[in-house]
């Protein structure tokens, strides 16, 4: 997959020039957080209890803030006049480069918490590494996000332990969630050309260097939760190059429809 293919097809089918890998690198991390924010937002008013409803909304808000900072930075790196909002609202499914993991539907609460554990454990390692980025803006955003991600990880780990080591029903559902989401947990650590260019330039880590720490964090939580670490070798990839599961299109429809139906709409 080449970068030009990732961004092929402009609004009128016009070819878009190959994007700068720096832009593409910042944008993929923005996309992860934007999609995460939308998934948490779907929980609002459906949380299992009031405090948890508030917590899920809060975590979503952190991801939204991280996404906005990164999108604004990506827009300025691109320098083609697109804004933070254009990048969030006017790109299509094929142009989004978020991980498949984070676009997976919320499912039951155990699914959301298992997805959160996998994603939060990845983000803690990622933000830590990005805090040393040669891109000072990216490093600043990451240093702030790292503090937030540690709270998120504590939240998802705590819940998974309670659910896994809870009742028979909650144990079974948690194991089902962990098994269902496991195929999406190698994509974050598979470097592509954009990651390698970023690592070369000191913008960010080689993602494969984050995997062993992720694995030990996640295994420790699953162990405490009395849940099995899946051994199924089946793996799903594609999000980073714009090939998504069927779920992202539906998510974007809900996220983007107002901005597209009423272009330029303001409060």
């Amino acid at each position: 997959m080449t970068e030009s293919a990732i961004f092929s097809g402009g609004p009128q089918g016009m070819p878009i020039p190959t994007p700068d890998p720096h832009f593409a690198y910042v944008l993929r991390h923005a996309d992860d957080n934007l999609v995460a924010a939308q998934r948490y937002g779907e929980w609002i008013s459906y949380g299992p209890e009031l405090e948890e409803d508030i917590a899920l909304g809060n975590i979503g808000l952190d991801h939204l803030g991280q996404a906005r900072s990164l999108l604004a930075h990506a827009a300025s790196l691109e320098g083609r006049g697109r804004t933070e909002n254009d990048l969030a609202m006017m790109r299509d499914e094929r142009d989004f480069t978020n991980l498949l993991l984070i676009e997976q539907p919320n499912g039951d609460f155990a699914h959301t918490m298992a997805r959160a554990l996998f994603f939060d454990a990845y983000q803690v390692g990622l933000w830590q590494a990005l805090s040393d980025s040669t891109d000072a803006t990216l490093a600043g955003i990451a240093a702030k996000a790292l503090k937030e991600a540690r709270y998120h990880l504590r939240h998802s780990s705590g819940w998974l332990v309670r659910l896994g080591d809870g009742t028979e029903e909650s144990h079974e559902r948690s194991q089902r969630a962990v098994d269902a989401l496991w195929p999406y947990t190698s994509e974050p650590f598979q470097p592509d050309a954009v990651d390698l260019a970023a690592a070369e330039a000191g913008l960010g880590p080689d993602p494969s260097s984050l995997e062993s720490e992720w694995r030990s964090r996640v295994s420790a939580v699953l162990g405490e939760a009395t849940l099995d670490v899946p051994t199924d070798p089946y793996r799903r990839h594609g999000g980073r190059s714009g090939f998504h599961s069927e779920h992202l299109g539906h998510l974007l429809t809900e996220l983007q429809w107002v901005a597209r139906r009423y272009p330029g709409l303001k409060w």
């Binding site: 405090e51 948890e52 909304g57 809060n58 975590i59 952190d62 709270y151 504590r154 939240h155």
Partner: peptide, 13 residues
């Protein structure tokens, strides 16, 4: 601790 996420992003309950 009731929740590490309160009524605003910066507060716990």
């Amino acid at each position: 601790t009731v929740s590490e996420f309160g009524s605003t992003a910066c507060k716990a309950l």
